[in-house]
């Protein structure tokens, strides 16, 4: 059986705000076709203030789907619609002290129901942009659709690259076969008929950098470094982490990994991913190191 937190169990055994809500003026009906779960979220919104006065749910789904629905109603009560639209699925999971990776889609369904209910209240049509596939990486809850999309969008060729971009495969490594299958599929589509090539093996060392472009001044270089960090920051913040430039010493770029990133088992992969982007952007071979590796000044 799943390792559910006490909070999940509590909200499942004693769900809050369940059942129909008579005076509801915003209703969101959503479902996940793959797992079959479905959720109806009912809101009663005060038209003057746009404050959610009451929220109820009805859920066809497993323990964590019911707990996620219950948590969602508790979270949004008292919020304005604009505040409620900022509630993410991670907020729902956090409220429940976490969900097993296989169950994160339950919290996604909660967020979608919320968006749908608010759209319904505002008389808008809500369309779902989220597609969900079979779970590939259980360590970081990454599904097949996401991996395939990222592989296509970024022209990825190796398991290592997939790990840099999505984290999938960076933990126990048991899903590498699954990732290779997705790579092989996308790459054969990319190659077209008649020239199918298998994905190359995971390289032991990073690939050689491109030839250096015209030399940058230190200020230009630091600006570029900050641009790279700004680009990866949203990805890290999504997982409650962050990164900050500590120092640049020649070819060595020292960064502070903050929040959930510090001490994370993925630290090496995160730095590897940042390093890859630095090399591409700066056009020279650099090393990205944690600030703890900075030489102690005499």
């Amino acid at each position: 059986m799943w390792e559910y937190s006490d909070k999940v169990r509590e909200h499942f055994f004693n769900p809050r705000n369940s059942g129909p809500l008579e005076e509801a003026n915003g209703i969101g009906d959503v479902g996940s076709i793959q797992c079959g779960d479905a959720l109806r979220l009912m809101l009663r919104v005060e038209p003057e203030t746009e404050i959610i006065q009451d929220a109820h749910f009805q859920t066809f789904g497993c323990g964590s789907a019911i707990a996620s629905s219950s948590a969602l109603t508790e979270i949004v009560k008292g919020m304005t619609l604009d505040e409620a639209l900022k509630v993410s699925n991670q907020n729902i999971a956090d409220y429940l002290d976490g969900l097993p990776p296989e169950k994160m889609h339950c919290s996604v369904m909660g967020r979608e129901a919320l968006q749908a209910a608010i759209a319904n209240y505002r008389g808008e049509v809500w369309s779902d942009d989220h597609e969900e596939g079979a779970l590939i990486c259980k360590c970081f809850a990454v599904d097949a659709v996401m991996i395939e999309d990222v592989v296509k969008a970024n022209n990825l060729n190796t398991v290592q690259e997939v790990t840099f971009y999505t984290k999938a495969g960076g933990g126990c490594a048991a899903c590498h076969e699954g990732i290779e299958e997705i790579l092989a599929k996308v790459m054969s589509e990319r190659a077209g008929p008649g020239e199918v090539s298998p994905p190359p093996a995971c390289p032991a060392t990073p690939e050689a950098p491109r030839p250096p472009s015209a030399k940058l001044t230190l200020v230009q270089k630091i600006k570029k470094i900050e641009e790279v960090l700004d680009a990866v920051r949203p990805m890290l913040q999504r997982d409650h982490g962050d990164v900050e430039l500590a120092d640049v010493q020649g070819k060595k770029i020292y960064v502070h990994l903050k929040g959930a990133c510090s001490g994370c088992m993925m630290e090496a992969a995160t730095l590897g991913g940042i390093q890859q982007k630095m090399i591409e952007t700066l056009g020279e071979l650099v090393q990205v190191l944690p600030s703890s590796h900075m030489p102690v000044e005499a």
Partner: peptide
């Protein structure tokens, strides 16, 4: 069912 409750499926 299905008529009364027709969720938007992802």
């Amino acid at each position: 069912p299905g008529a009364a409750f027709t969720p938007t499926y992802a």
